[in-house]
């Protein structure tokens, strides 16, 4: 069985993507733990899935759709209630430098 191994660089990369700051000890510990998890999940590859359609959802349901009707939004005070900082009726965030105007698309 081909065993997947996870390197410390993989963990550093994933942590960066998740905006987590890990120290050297944590990096070593999580590399070991994540490796263990992957090894455990690797057991699944022992199954013969020839001819089994890949599934995208755990429930055997499809087409849960709603009609296009607009309903009342939250009052702006509630929208901003949990904001760490606000500026008027906007969320206030640290200055975004050098990025696009926004991440749209």
């Amino acid at each position: 069985m081909a065993e997947k191994t996870i390197t410390i660089d993989d963990v550093r990369h994933v942590a960066k993507l998740a905006r987590l700051h890990l120290n050297a000890d944590e990096l070593a510990r999580f590399t070991l733990q994540l490796g263990g998890i992957l090894h455990y999940v690797e057991k699944l590859s022992e199954l013969d899935v020839t001819g089994v359609e890949p599934m995208a959802h755990a429930l055997p349901i499809s087409n849960v759709l709603r009609e296009d009707v607009a309903e009342e939004s939250l009052p702006v005070e509630k929208v901003l209630a949990n904001a760490p900082a606000r500026d008027g009726d906007f969320f206030s965030v640290p200055k975004v430098i050098g990025g696009d105007e926004d991440s749209a698309g």
Partner: peptide, 12 residues
């Protein structure tokens, strides 16, 4: 529309 007036818990 005025800022943050088309927002509900799903959007947040």
């Amino acid at each position: 529309a005025a800022p943050n007036t088309l927002v509900d818990p799903v959007i947040l």
